[in-house]
Design a protein around this nucleic acid. Structure first.
Lengths: 229, 229
DNA sequence: GTTACTTCACGTTAAATTGACGCAAACAAA
DNA sequence: TTTGTTTGCGTCAATTTAACGTGAAGTAAC
């Protein structure tokens, strides 16, 4: 077999949209760049693909070194190819999004700890590169995916109440969902398992704690939201 | 701004899954390779991304030079990164799938005309590289997308009968769909417009010809198929 | 022409699902 | 005990779905 002739190739970057849910708010982790281009501008955390690395490998490296986290839900989003998306030259970006529970991770990033910050998805600053577009696409993906696939629990503690799950859905979808109908859908789909325990110490009735049903047959439910027209 | 330092980068290829529908059969265009690696093996048509090119640019180039077609429905699928997916070295592949009406195109490809061939999706040969995986993913995408998005007409003539559209759905989804319920769904969603014309020359009652409604508000219908369990 | 046969177009109906609520038990605080 | 709130379970009308019936439109055979 003849050996592979190496032409000049674009660089390949992986950019991450890391979603976290905390205090009834959906947030995204952004990095304040310390170098040109887009110095002092907020951007998605990202990194270049090393020659022997897989995309998930690059994701892990970014999550660990810049954000100090590991073992999170990751899904490939889309690849971005606009020729002028990076002023330094031709760079293709593969977008991934991650879902994490901020309570489980200390956001510290090596030397650039205080340059990493959570931003409410509804109060996003101007982003460098084409990261606004990547963020938007990730946000849309999350909103549509959560309707038919159980990803919500990735953002919550291992044990959660149905009210907490309900609030998460309302927050992500930015709409109101009838509490009782939501409850019926989630329970009928066997999305969750009742642990029998209750969350103590609240002012009012103590709600039951559920955990995610990992044996769930996928695509078993469909949350409906009122169509805005 | 300091200029961009070019590390060694993986090559970037675009691989195409071109679907066509003909004689009640869903097919994919494959190329018989004349060079190593995978010489004499069937593979998806593909090509390397040029330095100034967009993904869609590469797609068009492949479609034109290898297959002699242009202006077709194209959608990005996924990017494939297995380090050993190409024996020549590190090659990242961005998968796209296309939907075409074979009646509209003469499949000829420059010097390699007779090396391009349609294969029934249910009688696929062994494929080189990781193209089986890319094909499978494209096939799954098509099957799920057609349920909630009007892509079927991309595979049909400009004018078609509801029976033809119905057969297309049954063929792609490999299931039976009630003829009368299907008809109602499609008509209620305003997926199609009745042209008033009829298809002549058939043995039995002459069915009405419809065209796709380009003003269709997307995501306006949901075809349900019996869940296999 | 009449009959036979097939497809096409349009209904009907029972079952299932959805959307919009009601209500009482559980809890803390007054 | 009373008050106010949240939680858990239920009801019911409206809508949607799944399954199936029937007659009109067409060709071919007689």
């Amino acid at each position: 077999m003849k050996t592979f002739h190496e032409y000049k190739n674009p660089s390949l970057a992986v950019d991450l949209v890391v979603f976290g849910y905390h205090n009834n708010t959906l947030s995204v982790l952004l990095l304040n760049r310390k170098e040109e281009p887009f110095k002092d501008c907020w951007t998605l955390p990202g990194g270049f693909l090393q020659m022997e690395e897989t995309f998930l490998g690059t994701c892990s490296r970014i999550l660990q070194t810049k954000l100090g986290m590991d073992e999170v839900f990751l899904e490939q989003l889309y690849s971005f190819d606009a020729p002028d998306r990076d002023p330094r030259g031709r760079v293709i970006a593969v977008g991934y999004y991650a879902l994490i529970n901020p309570a489980k991770f200390q956001v510290v990033g090596g030397s650039m700890a205080n340059d990493v910050q959570w931003f409410n998805v509804r109060k996003m600053p101007v982003l460098g590169f084409d990261h606004k577009q990547i963020f938007r696409q990730a946000h849309e993906r999350l909103k549509s995916k959560i309707l038919y696939y159980p990803v919500g629990f990735e953002l919550l503690d291992d044990l959660f109440t149905l009210t907490e799950l309900h609030e998460l859905y309302e927050c992500i979808l930015q709409t109101t969902i009838d509490r009782r109908n939501f409850r019926r859908k989630i329970l009928d789909a066997e999305y969750v398992i009742n642990t029998g325990m209750k969350r103590e110490g609240l002012k009012n009735r103590h709600p039951e704690l559920y955990k995610f049903n990992k044996q769930l047959k996928k695509n078993n439910f469909q949350i409906n939201v009122p169509t805005v027209s």
